[in-house]
Design a protein around this nucleic acid. Structure first.
Length: 427
DNA sequence: TCTGGGGTCCTAGGACCC
DNA sequence: TCTGGGGTCCTAGGACCC
């Protein structure tokens, strides 16, 4: 355990265990991807290990030994390798991660049914109903940390507070392998010395803006008139930031993404192995992405009306173009035709393109979608064909059936061998 | 050889209707 | 003839999260 974690733990234990109202627990796995990757490989335990990859990829996760060299999530792999040439680099194993994640979430649910899953490696728990079984929320945290380590051989950090946002900040402060309780009467003492960019919701752009106003600590934010913040950041964000600086937050732990709560959008994008100005390559990629998105829509039993095309150029500037269709769809031909048309209308000539993406929004359950058959279309042709494709994909994998243009081997920039792995980063 | 891929939410302007 | 707001939908962009 690091010195910082030792302090966090000591501080927590030194506080009264029963703090009325502190019923939100935030649990966050420590360097989740990396911890899972090395747990069965003791020879790597003390080495700098980076999970990530691809020659245009980013760091998804890094062990604390790698972080000591300045490596962190979201950093380009190029830079990470330069900072830590000795690092062992491992590709993420999403199947394994997903199994570990599900199992951890199940462990959470043995303590309370009110679990809000934020991502693969973190969740909020409302433990107000669990205090007959446990003497305090802190005891819940201790219990979960011990159980997860027993079951998974990975460590996690826990924050306990009166609101989700504070609990999350507390778990970040407790990292790695620690637990921190922030009692109500110590909220400002905890918050005000923090740097503004540590706040949840303050990213690079907002931090820069706040710094320009001379605001570096959360305490500075708290003592700035809310109107000043609203003028700088917009009415809502300004008010929210000011409230947060005083620990005020009306968020509650909400079990999310149940079977009855569909996604709001489904999309896919991909960075080319090398920037391209070849329209044929772009169109082929749009077809591949449209096919993938359509299949995911149908698998989820939803369809959507708005198709959005995303194009990122070589200089990282990014544009989107969208069109709302008359009827919701989950059909590859409609999604692809819309995406290609939106692309054509950009009128690009020899523009160097880094990434293209296709997303469908405004999703509704397929049984609720109204579909007006046009007189000029074959009534069931495509739907039947796509059902067959979906069945084949279910049995033989996602790429079992593809449009013919995607099957030809070619050595262009989007060649399969050069594509990036599908990845998701933890922070 | 800087900078992935999956999302959500917010803002702002214009069209259009009442 | 001149000119209101409010509400909703659509589009584009941007910020943020993991």
């Amino acid at each position: 355990m690091s010195a910082a974690a030792e302090v966090a733990r000591t501080v927590a234990v030194g506080r009264r265990a029963d703090d009325g109202g502190c019923t939100v627990v935030h649990v966050d796995m420590d360097a989740f991807y990396a911890s899972v990757a090395i747990r069965d490989r003791p020879e790597l335990h003390d080495l700098p290990v980076i999970v990530g990859g691809g020659h245009r990829g980013v760091v998804l996760s890094a062990t604390y030994a790698a972080r000591a060299h300045g490596v962190h999530s979201a950093m380009s792999m190029t830079r990470a390798r330069r900072l830590c040439p000795r690092a062992v680099i491992i590709a993420p194993d999403f199947e394994e991660l997903s199994v570990v994640s599900s199992s951890v979430m199940e462990t959470f649910r043995t303590v309370t049914p009110v679990v809000e899953v934020l991502s693969m490696d973190e969740a909020f728990l409302d433990v107000s109903g669990s205090l007959l079984r446990f003497t305090s929320p802190m005891a819940v945290g201790d219990y979960l940390r011990a159980r997860i380590y027993d079951e998974q051989q990975i460590t996690c950090s826990v924050g306990v507070a009166a609101t989700p946002t504070l609990a999350k900040l507390a778990s970040q402060r407790a990292k790695p392998d620690g637990l921190l309780v922030v009692p109500r009467d110590e909220v400002t003492a905890f918050l005000h010395p923090m740097r503004v960019e540590e706040l949840w919701g303050v990213g690079e752009a907002t931090a820069t803006q706040l710094h320009r106003l001379g605001l570096r600590r959360v305490g500075d934010l708290a003592h700035t008139p809310v109107e000043v913040l609203q003028r700088a950041m917009g009415h809502r964000s300004g008010a929210q930031l000011h409230a947060l600086a005083w620990g005020v937050d009306d968020r509650v732990v909400t079990p999310r993404r149940g079977p009855d709560e569909p996604e709001r959008s489904i999309g896919s994008d991909e960075t080319f192995g090398r920037d391209t100005d070849d329209e044929v390559v772009v169109r082929r990629e749009l077809l591949r992405l449209s096919t993938k998105v359509a299949m995911r829509l149908r698998a989820a039993g939803v369809c959507g009306r708005t198709v959005t095309l995303k194009v990122r150029f070589h200089d990282f500037t990014t544009i989107t173009r969208s069109r709302t269709l008359h009827d919701a769809t989950s059909g590859t031909p409609e999604i692809y035709a819309t995406a290609v048309d939106l692309f054509s209308r950009l009128g690009l000539e020899r523009a160097r393109i880094r990434l293209v993406g296709v997303r469908v929004e405004g999703l509704v359950d397929v049984t609720l979608a109204t579909r007006q058959l046009r007189l000029d279309e074959p009534a069931r042709g495509w739907e039947d064909a796509e059902r067959a494709v979906d069945l084949a994909a279910n049995r033989f994998g996602g790429s079992a059936v593809q449009p013919a243009t995607l099957l030809q081997r070619f050595s262009g920039p989007a060649g399969r061998g050069q594509r990036q792995p599908t990845t998701r980063r933890e922070r």
